[in-house]
Each structure stands twice: as structure tokens, then as C-alpha cells.
Write a protein that binds this DNA or RNA. Structure first.
Lengths: 164, 164
DNA sequence: ACCAACTGCTTGCATGTACCAACCATACCG
DNA sequence: CGGTATGGTTGGTACATGCAAGCAGTTGGT
């Protein structure tokens, strides 16, 4: 048997775990060391702005689900974004407890600038990569994120709730 | 390659930026939702333990450089690890201001357990991946980390410094 | 030998991110 | 209706991180 395949997979998993550990720790600084927009949007808020922009008006709960964060965390960040005039909070016609979050014009502007800046950093980091590697990396990252999303989701199968 | 190449590269960069944003935010939870060791080693401390284990006794400054973190951050985490009996602080013969950090037996044990657990999660996440994809992902992640390392380092050589 | 500048590390303080628990308001169901 | 479930906010807490200030030891110039 050419054990290289299976053994290589093991080695890869170990390597991936290590690199992810490092990446998650280091990558947070990229945002902070950025240019002018770093004072405008917090790192966490950027994700919210981007997702809100890309998927239209959402409720806080939907954001929490997307990022797999506690509702309270989102609540505070949303409050901060609203305070900063980057998003608005419209009443939800369907459910008066809830609200719909929408980017303001200002929010859109700031997001565009911040996003351009971040993409610039990423582009610079990857400037020497081949198109194949870029495409591959994008694809594999997306696949990994999808798996992570799955993993973090409350899987109804193997979940045993204790009786209240 | 056809004209798709250049355009694909742009799309890839945008996609990569998005996926990284998501990944960095979500991946932190993996550690926290772990099993029994989650109470033993903080997320940040795990990286320190692992690096210490893999590269032998180090000084705090070396750790700070490796993770691109402030020395004070490392100082606190090291103090906490020492407190927990996972590492020891030996005087450095070369420089009496400094010290050398070394894993204790207990630290090694805990690291091994935590690492196994984390690798298990990663392995599970990647269980359906082909060996080629695994190897590729490991390679590309490592390459990206190397670029990130470069980017974060005050490397006077290959970067245009906006010097006053 | 001495003082000044530097370096390695620690401490004090501020901020951002996150969770859980407790809570309020509305929705839904019997 | 009343009881429970759901969406969201607020209080309290813990961890991660950076900057500024400080202390101790090192180094270099005279």
C-alpha cells in the first residue's frame, strides 16, 4: 500500500490545525493596523456591515445566527453602529418585538472604503500567488467555512436536551 | 491561461477577504466549545504552549515576536500559565533581565490532550476532503501565514516605509 | 569607573469581544 | 384569557489586547 495518501492526510490535518491557530491570532491585527478607516469601524462591526450590505435588511437574530454569536454581543454592536449612524433600526412589520437593520448611506460609504482597504491588504499579501493558487485558496477557505458553519450549528440529530 | 485568469484573481481576492473575515470570527469558538480541556487552557495560552513545546525554551520576547503581540499581553499570559503550573520560568544565564520559559511535565500533558482534541475537531471538519485538497489547504494556509508574518513584521527591506 | 541610552519585562489603565443570566415586550397556543 | 415561547436588551463578568509608565539589568562612550 502506498501509505503516502493516508499518512499525508494526517500530517495535513495537524498542519492545518497549527496554521489556523496562528492565522486566527495574527489576522486580527490586519484590521487594526489599517489606514484611516480603522477608527471608523471596529473589527467586529465590519463583518456586520458587510453582511448587512450583501444580504439586505436583517434582524439582529439573523446576524447572531450567521456569526454564531450570542444575541447580546450582536445587540451591543448593533447599538454602537446605530449610534455611529452607520445603520438604522426600522420596526419590523411582521413582529413588533423585532426590528430590521439597514445600512444608511453613510454606512454604505464607510463599508465601501473599509472593504477596499482590507481587500487591498489581502491583494498585497497575495500579489505573488498564481491565479490557480488564489482560486484554490478561495475555494478551500469557503469550503472550510461551510464546514465550520455546520459544526457550530445546533445539529438536531445528536443533541439531547435535558428535561426542564 | 485564458483571460479568465486575471479577472478570476480579483474575484478570488474579494472572496478570500470575505472568507477570512468570517473564519477569524467563527474559528475562535471552536476552542471554547471543546471538551474537558477547555477549562484548563485559555485559547490564547494554547498557542503559547504549542510553540513552546515545538521550539524549546524561549524568552517572552521571542513569543511576542512570533505572535506579533505586545510584550505585555504575552507577559500576562505567561504569568497565568506559570500560575497554573504549565510552564516554568528559569533565569536566563545570558541576560539576567530575561528568563527562559519551559513546559512542565504537566504542561506537556495538557498540551497533548488539548492538541489532540483540537486536531480531532479539525479532522472531523475535514473528514470528507480529498487528500489533495487537504494537502493544498495546508500548503496555502502556511503560505498565507508566511505572507502575513512578513506583512506584520517591521521588515525595512521589501516594504515602502512611510517614514517621517 | 561612571553615566546615559537602550533593552527585556512587568504593571496600570483603557478598550473590544464575548458569554450567561435576568429581564421586558410581544407572539403564539391551549 | 393565561402560560409558555421567542426576539431583543441590559447587567455582570472574563479574556485578549495595546499603550504608557516603570523597573532592572546591559551596553557603550568617555
Amino acid at each position: 500500500m502506498q501509505a503516502v495518501g493516508a499518512q499525508g492526510a494526517l500530517v495535513s490535518v495537524e498542519s492545518i490545525e497549527e496554521e489556523l491557530t496562528l492565522l486566527v491570532r495574527r489576522a486580527q491585527k490586519v484590521h487594526l493596523r489599517g489606514g484611516p478607516t480603522e477608527h471608523v469601524v471596529e473589527r467586529a462591526a465590519y463583518g456586520i456591515l458587510a453582511w448587512l450590505h450583501d444580504t439586505g435588511p436583517l434582524r439582529p437574530g439573523a446576524l447572531a445566527a450567521h456569526f454564531h454569536l450570542d444575541a447580546s454581543t450582536i445587540s451591543r454592536q448593533v447599538a454602537s453602529l446605530e449610534q455611529a449612524g452607520l445603520i438604522t433600526r426600522e420596526p419590523d412589520a411582521e413582529d413588533r418585538r423585532a426590528c430590521r437593520l439597514r445600512l444608511t448611506e453613510h454606512g454604505r460609504t464607510v463599508l465601501t472604503a473599509t472593504r477596499a482597504e482590507r481587500r487591498g491588504v489581502v491583494r498585497e499579501l497575495l500579489q505573488s500567488w498564481s491565479p490557480e493558487d488564489l482560486a484554490n485558496f478561495a475555494f478551500l477557505l469557503a469550503a472550510f467555512n461551510a464546514g465550520l458553519d455546520d459544526h457550530l450549528s445546533p445539529n438536531p440529530n445528536s443533541r439531547e436536551e435535558s428535561q426542564p
